[in-house]
């Protein structure tokens, strides 16, 4: 086992957690072996346990503690109040942004703030990537559905931006104007009673044959399976990926981070690390997207890829 030249990041919390849980989570996360912490409300404008100003304060505190911090912007921006919150993030004065909407890219560009182009920016090719860089992106995340050979081809052209791969967690698959959690309770979105608080890892959607398939997270639809690219870190390193992202879950995130950190440091094999995380994630472990097939598939490549 050799050490890998990969950075480890923590993505924004995609679920709706209470204010106390969020603060507790970041208090702990501050002590984890992470290179970058992304934070902010990326999914739903109705999730206001922390206001935009709270997120900014929290980000500045973590930055004060010596962390590299990035504020993640909401991915679906519809109303003027969505844009107002976005402008507040842009004007935070200190911390860089992860943008997931063209409008956010516009504001970041106009303010001269370097940004991370998130997975929802739909950068599928090297020309669009070059364009992102011209707009001010210093790092990008490929769409989660991009396979390793497409990514390797793009990276072989040696883009100047850093590349980060979404490597762990339920996959963010779709956004809608409709809230599916509220729909489950026959509630209107405007009167959702914040039911998402009851599902800190999403609400499972299964087929009529009882097979876990998707996960409902308010206006976002996610995979039921846990995208687990831990066994593929060596190939990412080899193709020139800069960083890998762990997406927060309500329990065991510390262990997931520790497992990634151990594989990156070369102190534990990918197999042993995957083994150590059994039962510590939602759904089945899947890696189909990375391997160029349906995202829902566990290719098994998982077990020998870096054995």
């Amino acid at each position: 086992m050799t050490a890998l030249n990969l950075k480890l990041t923590l993505g924004p919390i995609l679920f709706f957690w209470s204010r106390d849980e969020v603060f507790k989570f970041y208090e702990e996360a501050a002590g984890w072996p992470l290179d970058t912490i992304y934070l902010g409300e990326a999914v739903c404008s109705r999730r206001q346990q922390l206001r935009t100003s709270d997120w900014i304060t929290l980000a500045h505190q973590l930055a004060d503690a010596g962390k590299d911090v990035v504020l993640s912007c909401q991915a679906l921006l519809e109303s003027e109040s969505d844009l107002k919150r976005l402008r507040k993030l842009v004007e935070n004065g200190r911390v860089r942004l992860e943008v997931n909407d063209l409008g956010a890219a516009k504001l970041a560009r106009e303010s001269g703030i370097p940004f991370v182009a998130g997975t929802h920016m739909n950068v599928y090719n090297s020309s669009t990537l070059a364009l992102m860089q011209r707009l001010g992106a210093y790092r990008w995340l490929p769409p989660v559905e991009m396979d390793r050979s497409t990514l390797a081809a793009i990276l072989a052209t040696q883009p100047e931006l850093e590349t980060e791969v979404f490597a762990w967690g339920r996959l963010p698959l779709a956004f809608s104007a409709r809230c599916f959690t509220a729909r489950h309770y026959n509630l209107k979105k405007d009167d959702c009673q914040f039911k998402c608080l009851d599902y800190p890892d999403g609400l499972q959607l299964a087929t009529r044959e009882g097979a876990g398939f998707l996960s409902i997270n308010g206006i976002q639809t996610m995979s039921d399976g846990c995208h687990a690219l831990l066994p593929h870190l060596a190939e990412m390193d080899a193709m020139g990926v800069t960083a890998v992202r762990v997406s927060p879950q309500s329990a065991h995130t510390a262990e997931v981070v520790a497992a990634f950190s151990a594989v990156i440091a070369g102190t534990q094999s990918a197999n042993a690390s995957m083994e150590s995380l059994k039962g510590k994630h939602a759904g089945e472990a899947v890696d189909g997207y990375w391997c160029g097939t349906a995202g829902i598939i566990n290719t098994g490549d998982t077990l020998h890829a870096s054995a």
């Binding site: 679906l76 769409p143 996959l171 698959l173 779709a174 639809t221 995979s223």
Partner: peptide, 8 residues
């Protein structure tokens, strides 16, 4: 912004 089809 919908990847449901490729997920399946």
């Amino acid at each position: 912004r919908c990847l449901l089809s490729s997920y399946a």
